Amino acid sequence: MRTGGPGTGKTAVGLHRVAYLLYAHRDRLARTGTLVVGPNRSFLHYIEQVLPALGELSVAQATVDDLVAHVEVRGTDDAPAAVVKGDARMAEVLRRALYAHVTMPTEPVVVVRGSRRWRVPAYELEELVRQLLDRDIRYGAARDALPQRVAHAVLVRMERAGEAPDDRVQDAVARNSAVKAAVKTVWPAVDPAKLVLRLLGDPEFLAEHADGLLDEQEQKTILWTKPARSVKSVKWSAADAVLIDEATDLIQRTHSLGHVVLDEAQDLSPCSTGRWAGAVRPVRRPSSATWHRAPPRGRPAVGRRR
Results as ranks from 00 to 15, higher is better:
residue 264 E to S: 02
residue 269 S to T: 13
residue 230 S to A: 14
residue 216 E to P: 04
residue 201 G to D: 12
residue 170 Q to K: 11
residue 278 G to S: 14
residue 201 G to W: 09
residue 169 V to E: 13
residue 170 Q to N: 03
residue 279 A to P: 01
residue 276 W to H: 05
residue 254 T to F: 09
residue 233 S to D: 12
residue 252 Q to G: 06
residue 208 E to W: 06
residue 166 D to I: 08
residue 267 D to A: 08
residue 196 V to Q: 02
residue 173 V to M: 01
residue 173 V to E: 06
residue 223 L to V: 06
residue 192 P to W: 13
residue 185 T to Q: 14
residue 272 S to L: 05
residue 222 I to W: 02
residue 256 S to I: 04
residue 234 V to W: 05
residue 280 V to I: 13
residue 180 K to F: 03
residue 217 Q to F: 10
residue 212 G to Q: 08
residue 175 R to I: 05
residue 264 E to Y: 05
residue 237 S to A: 08
residue 240 D to L: 06
residue 197 L to Q: 12
residue 237 S to C: 04
residue 164 A to L: 06
residue 226 K to N: 09
residue 257 L to S: 11
residue 182 A to S: 13
residue 220 K to Q: 06
residue 189 A to F: 09
residue 179 V to W: 06
residue 258 G to C: 07
residue 227 P to I: 02
residue 260 V to M: 12
residue 281 R to Y: 10
residue 185 T to E: 14
residue 285 R to L: 13
residue 258 G to P: 03
residue 219 Q to D: 03
residue 262 L to Y: 13
residue 207 A to R: 13
residue 279 A to M: 14
residue 282 P to Q: 00
residue 204 E to I: 04
residue 233 S to I: 05
residue 221 T to E: 07
residue 226 K to L: 09
residue 278 G to Y: 06
residue 206 L to A: 06
residue 195 L to C: 06
residue 251 I to Y: 01
residue 226 K to S: 09
residue 203 P to V: 05
residue 205 F to Y: 15
residue 256 S to R: 15
residue 234 V to R: 15
residue 247 A to E: 00
residue 193 A to I: 07
residue 257 L to K: 13
residue 164 A to T: 15
residue 182 A to R: 09
residue 175 R to K: 07
residue 275 R to F: 02
residue 259 H to E: 14
residue 169 V to M: 11
residue 228 A to Q: 07
residue 271 C to P: 00
residue 270 P to R: 01
residue 187 W to A: 03
residue 178 A to S: 15
residue 286 P to F: 01
residue 221 T to V: 12
residue 171 D to V: 06
residue 240 D to F: 02
residue 197 L to V: 03
residue 245 D to R: 14
residue 223 L to S: 00
residue 286 P to T: 00
residue 201 G to R: 03
residue 164 A to F: 02
residue 174 A to W: 00
residue 263 D to W: 01
residue 215 D to E: 11
residue 229 R to H: 11
residue 286 P to Q: 01
residue 235 K to A: 15
residue 210 A to V: 04
residue 177 S to L: 09
residue 284 R to V: 05
residue 194 K to Q: 14
residue 184 K to L: 11
residue 181 A to V: 06
